[in-house]
Amino acid sequence: MTTRDVIFPAGRQALYERNRYSPAIRSNGFLFVSGQVGSREDGSPETDLQDQVRRAFSNLDAILSAAGGSFADVVDVTIFMVDPQQTFEAIWQVVPEFWGEAPYPTLTAVGVTWLYGFDFEIKVIARAPETEEG
C-alpha cells in the first residue's frame, strides 16, 4: 500500500488530527486540497462573512504554500455557500483579492444548508510542484 503524501500547513496540524482528515494529498502530479473554511487557529469561525472568506483563502494559501505552490497552480475550484442567494455578492467581492488574473481555474459553486457553523468553504485541485523524490 502506498503511503499518502500529506501536506500540513504550519501551526494547524492538531486541528486536522482532531477532525481526522488530511488538509491536502499530493498524488500523480496534483494536489487535492480538502475544503477550507474561515476558521481561526482554534477552529472557530470568523463572524463576518467577508472576513470568513478571506480567512478560508488564507488557510488555503497556507496549504498551497506548504506544498511549494500558490493559487496560480489551482486548476479546479469548488465553493460551497450557505444561502447563496443572500451571500453570493458579498463573497464574490472578496474573491478577486485572491483569484489572480485570467485564465481562471474551473469553478463549481454549490448552495448548501449547513457547513458546521461556517457560511463559505473552498475546495481545490492544483498542479503539484515536483518533489525531490518525483
Rank of each mutant, 00 (worst) to 15 (best):
G68D: 00
S44D: 11
L49K: 01
A66G: 02
E97I: 01
G68K: 01
V74A: 04
P96I: 02
T108L: 06
G68I: 02
A102M: 09
I79Y: 10
F120T: 05
W114L: 09
F80L: 11
S39N: 15
Q50N: 00
P105I: 00
M81C: 00
Q93M: 04
R55Q: 15
T108D: 10
E89G: 12
A72C: 06
V124H: 11
A102P: 15
A126F: 03
L60R: 07
L107Y: 07
I63G: 02
E46G: 05
Q50E: 13
Y104F: 15
F120K: 09
P105H: 05
E46C: 13
L115H: 14
V75M: 05
D76Y: 04
Q93C: 00
V53P: 10
F71Y: 15
A66S: 02
E89W: 10
V95D: 02
S39L: 11
A109P: 08
Q86Y: 08
A62N: 09
L64A: 05
D76L: 01
I63M: 07
T106V: 09
E46R: 13
E101T: 13
T87A: 03
D42F: 09
Q93L: 04
P105Q: 05
F71I: 14
E41A: 15
L115M: 13
S65V: 03
A90G: 02
A67L: 00
D119N: 11
T106N: 12
P105F: 00
L64E: 07
R54P: 02
F120R: 09
P84H: 04
A56W: 11
F118W: 08
F98N: 07
F118P: 05
R55D: 01
G100P: 06
F57Y: 15
V82R: 01
V53D: 05
D48L: 03
P96Q: 03
T108S: 07
D119L: 10
Q85T: 11
L107R: 03
F98M: 06
I79F: 10
L64F: 03
N59G: 07
E41F: 10
S58H: 15
F120V: 02
R40V: 07
I63L: 04
F57R: 05
R55Y: 04
I91L: 08
R127H: 12
S44V: 09
A90S: 10
G111R: 01
V82G: 01
S70Y: 03
G100K: 03
A56R: 10
V95L: 10
L115P: 09
Y104S: 12
V94D: 00
I63C: 03
E41I: 11
T47Y: 13
T108V: 06
A56Q: 09
L49A: 06
T78I: 10
F118M: 12
G68N: 00
E89V: 13
L49R: 04
K123L: 14
A102G: 10
Y116W: 14
V74M: 03
E97K: 00
F118R: 08
D51E: 15
